[in-house]
Design a protein around this nucleic acid. Structure first.
Length: 106
DNA sequence: CCTTTGACGCTTG
DNA sequence: ACAAGCGCCAAAG
């Protein structure tokens, strides 16, 4: 089946909405789970342009280093960390343990 | 049309 | 552990 960009986008949205509370997922992993390996940047683009009505848990998506993709001194960063902490994720060091919190499909 | 930019990731040295 | 280079896709200039 030919994966049109439209289908790829929808697949990524579905994966994003499926990340369970208390877990996180990296951009690259989301792309891979959506059947679009290597398209991590597309995930980032979609998240940035999310409509407000969407219930996508954007805060559960971090980069492969276990860090937030936002600069530390921004509100977005603080909001993301705050949300993750409220879900029981330990972020005392500012870094999130992927070994412990990374969500894998099934 | 061509070039830059961006909520990224993997490989090498 | 850290930096540089390349790949990746879509939108904006």
């Amino acid at each position: 089946m030919q994966t049109s960009s439209e289908e790829a986008r929808q697949a990524i949205i579905t994966v994003l909405a499926s990340i369970p509370c208390g877990y996180v997922c990296t951009y690259g992993t989301v792309a891979k789970l959506a059947g679009q390996p290597g398209k991590a940047r597309l995930v980032g683009y979609i998240l940035k342009h999310l409509p407000e009505s969407s219930n996508i848990p954007w805060h559960r998506v971090i980069n492969s280093q276990g860090l937030s993709s936002f600069p530390v001194d921004t509100d977005k960063y603080l909001l993301q960390i705050s949300k993750l902490r409220s879900e029981g994720i330990r972020t005392s060091t500012g870094r999130i343990s992927l070994k412990e919190y990374l969500w894998l499909a099934g």
